[in-house]
Design a binder for these strands. Structure first.
Lengths: 125, 125
DNA sequence: CGGGATCCGGCGGGATACTG
DNA sequence: CAGTATCCCGCCGGATCCCG
């Protein structure tokens, strides 16, 4: 089970961070604690139902912490857990790679409509 | 566009490597070139249609290369591109984190059925 | 051999209304 | 305020058949 199923480990990580709004949620919570509606305001376009679901999934994996204050009206605060912070190196790498990738995509598009079929084959980025 | 949309870059990376069979495909191709049916044999459970689709998606992002030999019967070989190899640091990190995460999950399960409600709160993994 | 064409089910995500 | 409860839809992945 060494060479055989390495992709399983990668996929278990992917399962946790895959989700349309998970990344923006994690970024919002990296440096601050937020209440449910504060979080919702920071994420335009998301609905309560979906925000709740994504938060529950992250909470279930111990990536974030949910603290409920027994008050009226209710107050619920979300924050990143210590365990969740261990994801940061991965997210940093993915952030850098993604930025380069988008740049690369743009240059490819430019080449395609200026050269037609010609290719540089540089591949060195 | 610095603090605002970092998650977009991460998501652009996620979009590329997310896909039920992408990881196992990449691992199969890391150290060797494979023909279509060879690849299919190495990935039990996948269908031709889906394998073709995942390969096309990876090819479109320049992660893998597809070489067609104009022979009869046809021969098509797939291999990782130089650009695809730039993903390796990310995959390595995700592999390590995922392995630790699975271990952690197991210990949590053990604690839950031996202690019931008691929690160690160690969080130190 | 390496696909493409067609059909299909499940699930992630969304819109809306209601509630302790 | 911070959710649940319904209903709904698009898309990814799967099964099956056909083709140069």
């Amino acid at each position: 089970m060494d060479e055989t199923a390495r992709h399983c480990f990668v996929n278990s990580t992917l399962d946790i961070i895959s989700g349309k709004w998970k990344m923006i949620i994690l970024f919002q919570l990296t440096d601050k604690t937020l209440r449910f509606n504060e979080l919702k305001k920071q994420i335009p376009g998301i609905t309560q139902r979906v925000l709740t679901k994504q938060l529950r999934e992250l909470e279930q994996e111990d990536i974030i912490e949910r603290r409920v204050y027994p008050e009226i009206p209710p107050r619920v605060e979300y924050s990143i857990s210590a365990y969740g912070r261990t994801l940061q190196p991965i997210l940093t790498l993915m952030h850098e790679w993604g930025a380069l990738h988008l740049k690369r995509q743009h240059s490819v598009e430019r080449n395609q409509h200026t050269e037609g079929t010609g290719f540089g084959h540089d591949g060195t980025m």
